[in-house]
C-alpha cells in the first residue's frame, strides 16, 4: 500500500522533495504535545500576559497616555500589540530552533522520517506549520484576554491574528534554516543573544522616535520592528501602505527560510 501511495505522486510538483505529508507531521506534533510539551506551550501564553500586567499597569500609572501616529492612546494599548508580535516570534523561534535542533542532532528524528517516503520539504513545512499553529493559538488566546479589556481600539485589530501567523511563519522558517546549520547546542545561544536586545529595542515599550537617527535606522532592519509596526498598525486601525511593506518583509523571510531549510535538509540527509 505504501508503494501505491508514493507512486500516486509521480509527476506531481516537487515529487523528489515533497510527498504531501504535512498533516502527518502535525499529527506527530499533537501526539508529542499531549504527552510532554504542553508545559512549554503554556508558559508561552502567560509570558505576554505577565508583561502586559506588569508594564501596562506599572508604567501605565506613571505614563497614562502615549502619542503614536498622531493619536493619543493609553500605555497598555500601545504595548499590547507589541507583546502579541513578540509572543508570535518567541513561540515560532522555540519550535524552530531548540525543538528542531534536538530532533536533528540528538534524537535524530529527521533521519527516521526521511527514510520513509517523505521528503525534506515535508519535514520543513510540517515543523513550520506546527510553529504556525502555536503562533495562531497564542494570538487567539492573547486577543481573548486583551480585547475585552478594551486594549484593541480598532476592528482592524482582528487582522492582527493572521498577521501573527505571518510573523510566526517568517521567524519559524528563518529559525529552522539557521538551526539546520548549527553544529552545537551552544551555537543556538547566538540566536537568543539576538532575540532579547531585539525585543527590548524594537519599540515594544516606547516609540522608536526617542532614539537617535542612526539607531532608528538599525532597529528598522530588525524583523521584530516590522512585526510590531504591522500588528500595532492593525490594532490601532492606522491602515496605510507601510503595513504592506512590513508584511512583505515577512513574505521574503518565509521564502528565504524555506529555500535554505529545504536545501540544507537535502544536503544533510540526501548527500
Amino acid at each position: 500500500m505504501a508503494v501505491a501511495i508514493a507512486e500516486a505522486r509521480i509527476g506531481k510538483w516537487g515529487e523528489r522533495y515533497y510527498s504531501g505529508r504535512v498533516l502527518q507531521l502535525l499529527e506527530r506534533g499533537l501526539i508529542a504535545f499531549r504527552s510532554s510539551t504542553w508545559m512549554i506551550v503554556f508558559s508561552g501564553f502567560f509570558e505576554p500576559v505577565l508583561y502586559l500586567l506588569s508594564f501596562g499597569y506599572g508604567i501605565g500609572k506613571l505614563l497614562p497616555t502615549i502619542d503614536v501616529g498622531g493619536e493619543t492612546v493609553k500605555y497598555a494599548v500601545f504595548i499590547a500589540p507589541a507583546l502579541l508580535a513578540t509572543s508570535a516570534m518567541n513561540g515560532a523561534i522555540y519550535d524552530s530552533t531548540m525543538n528542531v535542533f534536538f530532533k536533528l542532532n540528538h534524537d535524530r528524528i529527521y533521519h527516521g522520517m526521511l527514510a520513509t517516503s517523505m521528503g525534506p520539504l515535508d519535514v520543513a513545512l510540517g515543523e513550520i506549520s506546527w510553529a504556525l499553529i502555536r503562533g495562531l493559538s497564542y494570538a487567539c488566546a492573547f486577543m481573548a484576554v486583551v480585547a475585552p479589556l478594551g486594549l484593541i481600539p480598532s476592528m482592524w485589530g482582528y487582522l492582527a491574528i493572521p498577521a501573527a501567523v505571518l510573523i510566526a511563519f517568517g521567524f519559524a522558517s528563518i529559525g529552522m534554516a539557521l538551526t539546520s546549520y548549527m553544529k552545537s547546542f551552544q551555537q543556538l545561544e547566538i540566536i537568543n543573544m539576538f532575540l532579547l536586545p531585539m525585543f527590548l529595542f524594537s519599540g515594544s515599550f516606547y516609540p522608536l522616535s526617542v532614539f537617535p537617527e542612526w539607531l532608528q535606522f538599525t532597529v528598522n532592519l530588525f524583523p521584530l520592528t516590522h512585526a510590531i509596526n504591522l500588528v500595532r498598525g492593525l490594532c490601532l486601525g492606522h491602515i496605510n501602505v507601510a503595513l504592506a511593506g512590513h508584511a512583505m518583509y515577512f513574505v521574503i523571510m518565509i521564502i528565504c527560510g524555506l529555500f535554505f531549510t529545504t536545501r540544507r535538509l537535502n544536503a544533510l540527509f540526501m548527500k
Binding site: E7, I10, H111, G119
Partner: peptide, 21 residues
C-alpha cells in the same frame, strides 16, 4: 527517492526512535 523508500524498511546503525512518543 520517495517511491523507492516506500518499498524499503530501514533499520539504521544508530537508533532514531522518537523519544517523545
Amino acid at each position: 527517492g520517495p517511491q523507492i523508500r516506500a518499498h524499503l524498511g530501514v533499520v539504521p546503525q544508530q537508533d532514531n526512535l522518537d523519544m517523545q512518543l
